[in-house]
């Protein structure tokens, strides 16, 4: 598994496996979309449409929700007395334009989506931005500790605190 024998074949094989896995995943995770429901409305009456692509709230009031999708804005109707807002106890009024969301909807005739459950995720953008910081930090440490030598990556020995035994057998300085 780790030897130099057939190394390039192993690398090539794994590199080919990734697009294959992505293709298989794409085939296995075919989400029902509103557009698909509209192609045969009677067949999809009552079907659940829940996997939206990076949706954001464009507009919201008591009766309808407008979300962004790659194909354009999508309207979702909110039934009267709707109480499917998560986390439990939250209300529709707490949802704001610009927020990310997770939603479960049901396709209804003649051709609209009705909200079944929703969860606003206003912190999603912050989560994505903050996630860049540790990537930069780890990248910086990797640049300091790894070098390209004679066709291979090599981890440099930690000589900065050679007098400290625990460090020599321990971690890169972090």
């Amino acid at each position: 598994m780790f030897s130099n024998r057939y190394r390039s074949v192993k690398i090539l094989g794994i590199l080919l496996l990734f697009p294959s896995l992505a293709w298989y995943s794409n085939r296995e995770n075919r989400f029902l979309s509103f557009a698909e429901c509209m192609r045969d409305p009677t067949r999809y009456q009552g079907a659940e449409v829940s996997n939206f692509l990076e949706p954001r709230i464009l507009d919201v009031d008591d009766r309808r929700l407008l979300i962004s999708q790659p194909d354009g804005p999508l309207e979702i109707r909110i039934p009267k007395g709707f109480d499917g807002v998560f986390p439990e106890g939250a209300e529709i009024a707490e949802l704001k334009p610009g927020d990310s969301l997770e939603a479960v909807t049901v396709f209804r005739l003649p051709g609209y989506l009705e909200l079944k459950a929703i969860r606003g995720a206003p912190l999603r953008r912050l989560k994505i931005v903050l996630s860049i910081l540790p990537v930069l930090l780890v990248g910086f440490i990797l640049l300091r500790t790894v070098r390209w030598r004679k066709g291979f990556l090599v981890i440099l020995p930690d000589t900065s605190e050679a007098s400290d035994k625990s460090d020599r057998s321990g971690n890169f300085k972090l």
């Binding site: 990734f18 992505a22 794409n26 995770n29 996997n51 692509l53 990076e54």
Partner: peptide, 11 residues
Amino acid sequence: FPRLLPATLGL
């Protein structure tokens, strides 16, 4: 690229 979501789930 939001359309890639189904493909990335398996990764």
